[in-house]
Design a protein around this nucleic acid. Structure first.
Length: 564
RNA sequence: GGCCCCGUAGCUCAGUUGGAUAGAGCAUCAGCCUUCUAAGCUGAGGGUCGCGCGUUCGAAUCGCGCCGGGGUCACCA
């Protein structure tokens, strides 16, 4: 709808410009004006801010310019069929807006396009097939996923769905920290539990993992390998315990994710970076560029060359790598695999790490614009208005699994997506569970179920819409109906906005508005009536609303129930 | 102390990238079901957009300076 008006205005823009500034020609391409929905009711259907945009250039008051534009437009409207088809009247308002009232059912034609496109409605080629890699969760496989991982998981997965919907080729990747100290500790912890179960004395590692889930894993380990492990050398036994543990824990992580409707395209092993000597290679590449130096017995990366506030250690004086070294290698591999753009979702504790990584990517010859790091802020769970303490101590609410079990997958995903990524999220457990009007998830799902109920009442098989296409669109004239069509026509743009800003919550907001428009329509008008042609037109309308709701919910990974 | 995020209605948050009279939901109060789902709709009250200065025709939005809350500043991962 906005696009249609923009096209019409663009067509007469040169004329406007030459008339306003006859001696100094202005390039129409340089004029950047917006078509918007007026904020104030009674100002028509759409408005443009052309007057303001031109006022600076022409050094004239916005109102004066807008009035001038109006005269030209009115002249055009008398002779141009396209203008007549869309625009009913134009007015100039106070500071300098041009407000357009559209022909009542000019928009109804969109319904046909939507119904035809069906599940594809909303999709676009905006991303031009550009390959994007979204890396998220990336938890150490040392324990169950937490609430924090859950928010990242919901966001990362939904971002991938959004990007793919608008024509990017986005893949989801889980970086598996299966090397290093934490994993070693995991092996030792399991081994300690194993010894405990077997009555063999073994000191529990100081910073080991004390979670009770490791006792279960140790028990399984014992069932599978038996006491024979005890006779092996302890390094070998710990190695077995470690491998066994990682596999078990990773399986349960994958299970949690699958239950949350998330399947990763790839799990990338940190260990493989060492096995394939990529870490060495990358350090050498940086060294060749004079960006690596030795000091105090350690190997450093000169990240200050790229705006970091200090240089960073790649290899400690002990000979061990820091986390940064394999991370640079990993990102080099990501680019090497053909991704033009990388999106990482990290926790707030990593934000200081961003300049380091961007510096590294620039050092390797990539632009810092090719990598986006989204810092996913913390989530606080509330029960009865009181924050739920989250610590690893027994009995306290920590895992994603527990959350999903308590409130369900739909509410879990929805609540995680509801807020902007970089703001703290208050997750009200009672609210998420409530099957009532207070719960925002149900507001959307209810609209979908309501429409399904109407279509069922009208005896309509879901797939069959051919006869609806023949509906008499001139019957659609009510403001609530026009409003619905207007909203629906914005869906493709909402997806593009969400994709370019990497902000899934925009889709949540969009769908809430659409559902609200529908509920308002429903309260005032009947769909199925004894007027066959009106009924048919409104069935087409509601069919389309359901389709957009469903497409939107699909992008969020939330189910669209036909009955509630 | 440096850097990052936040500060908008009693609470939780939007504010379409600088536009018109700052909006939703919850909570409070008052209404609406003999007809397609009341998990819904309509209305009322509720605001110094943390404070100040600046840029602009125009600022919740941009800049600078304060105030307040949270996070982070390792040869940890």
């Amino acid at each position: 709808m906005k696009n249609e008006l923009k096209k019409l205005v663009d067509r007469i823009l040169p004329e406007i410009l030459s008339e306003l500034s006859p001696e100094q020609p202005i390039d129409p391409k340089k004029i950047d004006y917006d078509v918007d929905l007026p904020k104030v009711k009674g100002h028509g259907d759409l408005s443009i801010n052309l007057g303001f945009q031109l006022s600076r250039m022409l050094k004239k008051a916005p109102f004066e310019i807008a009035t001038h534009c109006l005269r030209i437009i009115e002249k055009k409207m008398k002779v141009d069929a396209d203008w007549q088809k869309w625009v009913k009247s134009v007015t100039v308002a106070k500071p300098g807006f041009l407000n357009f009232k559209l022909v009542e059912n000019s928009a109804a034609g969109f319904l046909i396009d939507m119904a035809k496109a069906d599940a594809a409605y909303g999709k676009s080629e905006f991303g031009k097939g550009k390959r994007v890699l979204i890396e998220f969760v990336s938890a150490n496989p040392t324990g169950p996923l937490t609430i924090a991982h859950g928010r990242q998981a919901a966001l990362g997965d939904t971002l991938a769905r959004i990007l793919n919907a608008v024509g990017f080729k986005a893949d989801k990747e889980f970086y598996l920290n299966d090397a290093g100290r934490q994993i070693r500790l995991l092996g030792e912890s399991i081994w300690a539990r194993f010894c405990e179960l077997s009555g063999k004395p073994y000191a529990f590692p100081e910073e080991g993992y004390k979670g009770t889930y490791l006792i279960d894993i140790a028990r399984e380990l014992k069932e599978q390998f038996g006491e024979s492990l005890l006779s092996k050398k302890s390094a070998e036994a710990i190695d077995t315990a470690r491998q066994f543990g990682v596999t078990k824990i990773l399986d349960s992580i994958k299970k949690d994710l699958a239950d949350m409707r998330i399947v990763f395209d790839n799990y990338f092993s940190e260990k493989s970076l060492y096995e394939r000597k990529v870490v060495e290679e990358v350090i050498e590449r940086l060294r060749a560029k004079q960006l690596v130096f030795e000091a105090e017995g350690a190997v450093w990366f000169r990240s200050t060359d790229f705006g970091d506030d200090k240089d960073r250690v790649l290899r400690k004086s002990t000979g061990e790598n820091t986390y940064l070294a394999p991370d640079i290698a990993y990102h080099s591999v990501k680019f090497g695999r053909g991704y033009e753009r990388l999106v990482n979702l990290w926790g707030p504790d990593h934000h200081g790490y961003v300049p380091r990584l961007k510096a590294a990517c620039q050092a390797l010859g990539y632009s810092k614009d090719q990598i986006d790091v989204l810092i996913v802020q913390l989530t606080t769970l509330y029960r009865d208005g009181v924050p739920v303490r989250m610590s690893t101590r027994a009995g306290e609410f920590v895992t994603l699994r527990e959350l999903m079990d308590e409130v369900g997958v739909d509410a879990t995903r929805f609540f995680f997506l509801m807020r902007k990524v970089d703001s703290h999220l208050d997750f009200d457990l009672e609210l998420a569970k409530k099957q009532s009007d207070e719960n925002p998830v149900y507001y959307l799902q209810y609209a979908h179920a309501r429409i399904s109920s109407i279509l069922a009442y009208a005896n309509r098989p879901d797939e069959q819409v051919d006869d609806l296409m023949k509906a008499d669109l001139s019957r659609i004239i009510e403001p609530e109906e026009i409003n619905l069509i207007k909203k629906m026509s914005e869906f493709p743009e909402a997806l593009v906005q969400a994709a370019t800003n990497l902000e899934p919550y925009r889709i949540v907001d969009y769908l809430r508005e659409l559902a609200a428009s529908f509920h308002k329509f429903y309260a005032l008008h009947r769909v199925v009536s004894d007027d066959p042609s009106l009924t048919q037109a409104r069935l087409l309308l509601t069919h389309c609303v359901r389709l957009v709701l469903r497409n939107g919910l699909t992008v969020l990974g939330v189910s669209a129930p036909k009955k509630m």
